[in-house]
Amino acid sequence: MTEQSTEGTIFHSKRYTSWPSMTEDIDAGNLHAAFILAPLAMQMARQGKTKVKIVHLGHRDGTAIVVPTDSKVESFADLRGTRMAIPHRYANQRILVERMMAEYGFSEDDLKLIDYPPPEMPAALKAGAFESYIVGEPFAAKAEMDGFGRVLYHTKDIWPNFISCVLIVTQDLIDRDPALVQELVSGITASGKWLDEGDERLLSGLVMESASNQDDVDSGKVIVPDEFGRTPRLQAAVIAAQRRYYNQNPELLKFVLTKPPDRVKYTELELARDEFAEIQHWAEKLGFFDSRPVTEDDPFDFLDYCDPRFEQGRLRDLPLQDLASAAAEGAQ
């Protein structure tokens, strides 16, 4: 959201279409900050080709296991002997499934995991390519909104505060410009706090449709349809739906952000040692670090892949319009 403000650094959001092209760009030195799958981030840190550090989370939860609406599956145990699509081999979604398989006493053959591109998952579920899938939003909400899928579990029910993607920056950037990293992390913390706790004040650069005029259109202001609503989450849905961010249908993002509101969470984004220890434990167990196994002589610990110091910084203020002008707009 920082592109909305008029001062400070401009953070450009660059939308990739695959994880490898992102990691290759980081290794090539073209890219210094990214939201990336948590275990993939650890693996990059472990391989050490490019030194990267996790500095913050972008959100929590926001992942779901989806089954067809007419499916008889009522709990994870019913998935025995079926196929499930996962977004990536090194995704935390896979760790979640493996963790549940262990919990429910599944053997490796009891659930066949298939690597599948997330955007294709809803259609493939409908076509019967597999019996369930686990994915980050908005591709779970998509099946729900279109009516052919239902959520078996939200992550809040099976691994509360689930971590899907994390913010990594290169060590190079941390050394070169720690203030810039600080600005980025503080901005994300502030945006998250606003998303979960903010009031109906509009972000600067936004205008309600009924209060907008030709000048607003010409100056590129983001216009919020009145019937859409103006809570921070709905403002965010309108912003994120734009082409330069997610390029998604705003109604779908509205669904993701509000049905129910704790489907995705944007507070408590601080890095917690025990949560990463759990992810690392499973990553080791599943062989994510096989190219450089973790041993006593060659340890791998929280501070080898996380740098939580930027979370201590001063919280910054988001550029919000004051309520007076919002009320004036409402009266118009």
Binding site: Y16, S21, P118, N247, N249
Partner: peptide
Amino acid sequence: EMLGVESGLGYQVMDSRNAL
């Protein structure tokens, strides 16, 4: 462009696919 870059017609195809 479907694999490596973030502009071009191949990117348009992949990105639209992601956007459903």
